[in-house]
């Protein structure tokens, strides 16, 4: 299978006021690759991820998603966001909708999918996750792990080309982390392109093809998963790994 670039990032800079969070980042993400982003807090990981679907507007540089520069004038970002799934640290399920509505509202409203079809599709996903008895529950009635798995399904319902995960397990109780990571691993097996910001080192090593070390707004190391941990070059990565491992 030929490897296409799905997202290309060129010269990405992002500042909040005087604070420069991302400093001239250039990289690319290939189809069916799983890339993890690791680094100290405040290093710009989340900001980088949020720039990819323009939740944060880059100060300069470009995000090229399937040959379209998302930062260019006249681009309808809403159309492209449908193809870029995003999973948040705090789940962000729609609190005013039950699980079924959370899953079907976007496919029905945005893609014009029929209700029967959308609900059947949602049911298939829910059954695979063992969450079919939660169809009528509201987010407040679910555990963190359940919420996050539903949030992943909500993104999958749109059949995205790539999924972005912003610290998907950081807000979870320890005993629920496993169930969420298992879902992400399963997606990796199925060939979903994913970019994952995470603090779970073992998981990153297991699931990723490639790992980026983001520190001080720059990519300090960009290696295959095994090399990243076994043969780190950057002194900052070495000291970071010593602290966390």
């Amino acid at each position: 299978m030929e490897e296409h670039n799905i997202i290309k990032v060129e010269g990405l800079c992002k500042s909040f006021g005087d604070l420069q969070v991302l400093n001239d980042i250039t990289t690319e993400f290939k189809e069916k690759q799983v890339v993890s982003i690791i680094g100290p807090s405040g290093g710009g990981k989340s900001t980088f991820l949020r720039c990819l679907n323009l939740l944060e507007t880059p100060t300069s540089g470009s995000i090229i998603f399937r040959d379209v520069d998302l930062c260019a004038k006249g681009v309808d970002i809403n159309v492209h966001r449908q193809k870029i799934g995003m999973v948040f640290q705090h789940f962000n399920l729609f609190n005013n909708m039950n699980v079924m509505k959370n899953l079907t509202v976007a496919p029905m409203r945005i893609k014009g999918m029929e209700q029967d079809e959308a609900e059947a599709k949602a049911m298939t996903f829910l059954k695979r996750m063992g969450l079919e008895d939660k169809v009528t529950s509201y987010p407040s009635q679910l555990s963190g792990g359940q919420k996050q798995r539903i949030a992943i399904v909500r993104s999958l319902m749109m059949e995205p080309d790539v999924m972005l995960f912003d610290e998907p397990t950081s807000a979870l109780d320890p005993e629920m982390i496993g169930e969420v990571l298992d879902v992400i691993k399963q997606l990796a097996v199925e060939g979903m392109t994913m970019i994952i910001v995470t603090h779970e080192m073992r998981f990153a090593r297991e699931v990723s093809n490639r790992i980026l070390f983001l520190d001080g707004g720059r990519i300090d190391e960009d290696r295959s998963a095994a090399e990243f941990f076994d043969d780190p070059h950057s002194p900052r990565l070495i000291s970071f790994l010593q602290k966390v491992l």
Binding site: M86, R109, M158
Partner: peptide, 8 residues
């Protein structure tokens, strides 16, 4: 953010 990121 969730609503916007899904394409609304």
């Amino acid at each position: 953010e969730a609503a916007r990121s899904i394409g609304f």
